[in-house]
Write a protein that binds this DNA or RNA. Structure first.
Lengths: 231, 231
DNA sequence: CGCTGTCAAGAGCAGTGCTCTCGATTTAGC
DNA sequence: GCTAAATCGAGAGCACTGCTCTTGACAGCG
């Protein structure tokens, strides 16, 4: 469990964590674009230039927070998903868990699923933690398929051309799941985040807000849509 | 067409428009949060403090741009919608128009449908232009219903409780359209913007990107989903 | 003509990200 | 154990930002 060999290494690791924690507090309180290195350094009682020994730029600090946020959401979703036996229940529970996490961590949600921070270019290191939840949900479809509890959607066209190739890359994660289900899964994925973003950013005010019942209804319909049988 | 009576009034109206135009250029080039009053004033050859005679704050300038963006998208969608006879074709065409506008005006799209700018609170004046597109799409459903071309979705539960009340407020815009269709319409609305945001913000990279075929397929399925018959 | 309201300009405040230099301290190699 | 190298926090400074306040000039109206 010894993080580093020398005292300096340990101190560095600890301080790095403290910086991230202070930055996260600021993020939660003020939002991503108001996250200020100088304010973080003030909170830690150090001078602003010292921060640059730990994070080369503000964007790098943001990247660290982004990865942490993806991992936190991924861990939460996986935990909830494991609790359910039946794939459909797990799918619906994961959807509700994602919404719950987004509502209790709106700034972190915005950081990863909102519009990108100006001038910020996400590095490759974020895509692995970013794919935890989608992989989890695709996995649930595969599990349902194995159990024979996945219906192939009616009326949907069989993907062809470029779309068929794209679906094929996803299909590697879920052998046996029909292509028509996979395109619907991506639709469902976007639907989930569209609804959450609308709710969080006030686009539903005046109509479906508060959205608890509407969201629950939508998630049931979405589970039907991707072919998950009701238990 | 005379904007103001005195020369001063006319100059003021012109300058206000010039400020908005310069600000929009900056928005397109740099993004909303990098929009700088000082840079706008530099471009116009005036001093920064003079801008405050026209827009009391940066947020007020943003509000003006937001309203313009909503109106531009709304006008575009309405134009495309009018070109189509059949409600389903119009619905699908409007969806594609929204995506097209978003792709050609990503910063303006982000301004109105992305995560809110930090500390910015949208004033009431934005909600009327914001509702042009949803009202248009609900109207298409009502038109289809009148023509007897709207199928009531199977498998969907009839809304009850709070949800039923919420749907009732929407139903005033679309008399005759079944409640089950209206909840699906809101889902479709969120689906559309979820997909566009995913595409714009790189969440589809590695899977469905480029998204043209996928988007087209999704929109057809979505039209089915809300009960619009294929022509 | 003179008053009043409007205007652009400029200085200034408090804040930002980031760079560079400067001693002090710790680590690592011999 | 001693020295050279790496690392560290501190501080000054640059080029920005939104915004406020004051000042002096000008236009419009009675």
């Amino acid at each position: 469990m010894n993080a580093g060999r020398t005292a300096r290494d340990r101190a560095r690791a600890e301080l790095t964590q403290e910086i991230k924690d202070a930055a996260r507090r600021q993020l939660v309180a003020e939002g991503a674009e108001r996250l200020s290195l100088r304010a973080v350094s003030r909170e830690l009682g150090m001078v602003s230039s010292a921060l640059y020994r730990y994070f080369p730029s503000r964007d790098d600090l943001l990247t660290a927070l982004i990865i942490d946020a993806y991992d936190a959401l991924g861990a939460e979703a996986e935990k909830v998903g494991r609790r359910e036996q039946d794939p459909r229940s797990a799918w619906v529970a994961v959807c509700h868990a994602v919404r719950g996490w987004a509502r209790s961590h709106p700034q972190e949600y915005t950081l990863i699923y909102g519009s990108p921070v100006a001038g910020y270019k996400a590095p490759q290191t974020t895509i692995q933690p970013a794919s935890r939840v989608p992989i989890l949900m695709i996995g649930l479809l595969a599990k349902a398929e194995e159990a024979g509890a996945l219906a192939s959607p009616e009326g949907a066209r069989e993907p062809s051309g470029v779309l068929a190739e794209q679906v094929a890359t996803i299909a590697e994660l879920a052998p046996g799941v029909p292509a028509k289900v996979l395109t619907r899964a991506v639709m469902a994925w976007a639907q989930l985040f569209g609804l959450i973003s609308f709710e969080l950013y006030g686009q539903l005010v005046g109509t479906m807000d508060p959205a608890d019942e509407f969201f629950a209804d939508a998630m049931e319909q979405l589970a039907d849509f991707v072919g998950l049988h009701a238990a």
